[in-house]
């Protein structure tokens, strides 16, 4: 051990290199992990309008879509735990929502407007309490070849007297 301490200075650059390579390997590993994990689990935020436009390009991708729930379309089979409903397009941008009079107004306008792009959703799981007319559904899942959105996760937001109302979460 004593030998190492008194080793000549000339060894320092060699050591530096060793540590540099070691450090770079770690950095490379972290970068690799970040890139592959991002690719594997990235979720694309899309509005229903964008979905309609891009159509088949996005089939199979992890998507996150938000829309206004149309109350009459909700069908739930408690035996098979299959939930079907339709959502109408709402803007994806918060500023735009604010500009149109807030979330509640935007959701209401989306539901009553039959010309808005709509999307059919199928979700396997328990029907969340907050799923009702003019609620905002935030769904993650994939678009099927049949044009139906297969939601794996369903979050609902209801504009209540709480501006900061929590989304109820249910995962499937």
């Amino acid at each position: 051990m004593e030998q190492t301490i008194s080793k000549p200075i000339s060894n320092v650059p060699a050591n530096r290199l060793k540590f540099l390579i070691g450090g770079l390997l770690i950095v490379a590993a972290v970068v690799y992990l970040i890139i592959t994990s991002t690719q594997a689990s990235a979720q694309y935020f899309m509005t229903i309008e964008e979905l309609e436009q891009k159509g088949s390009q996005v089939i199979g991708r992890n998507l996150r879509v938000s829309g206004a729930v149309i109350g009459d379309s909700i069908q739930y089979d408690p035996q098979t735990l299959t939930l079907r409903f339709t959502v109408a397009h709402v803007p994806g941008d918060n500023k735009e929502i604010e500009a149109q009079g807030g979330l509640a107004a935007v959701l209401h306008a989306a539901v009553i407007d039959p010309s808005r792009p709509r999307l059919q959703v199928i979700y396997q799981g328990v029907k969340p309490d907050l799923l009702r007319d003019e609620a905002q559904a935030i769904m993650t899942g994939k678009l099927g070849e049949d044009g139906i959105f297969y939601a794996e996760e369903l979050l609902l937001k209801c504009p209540t007297k709480y501006e900061e109302a929590l989304p109820e979460q249910s995962e499937g």
Binding site: L33, S37, A40, S41, A42, Q43, Y44, F45
Partner: peptide
């Protein structure tokens, strides 16, 4: 211009080896 997010699977995958 595309809004993309990563969820728990990203963190689990990337941090588990670390």
């Amino acid at each position: 211009g595309q809004k993309v997010t990563v969820g728990p699977p990203f963190y689990e995958r990337a941090t588990a080896p670390l």
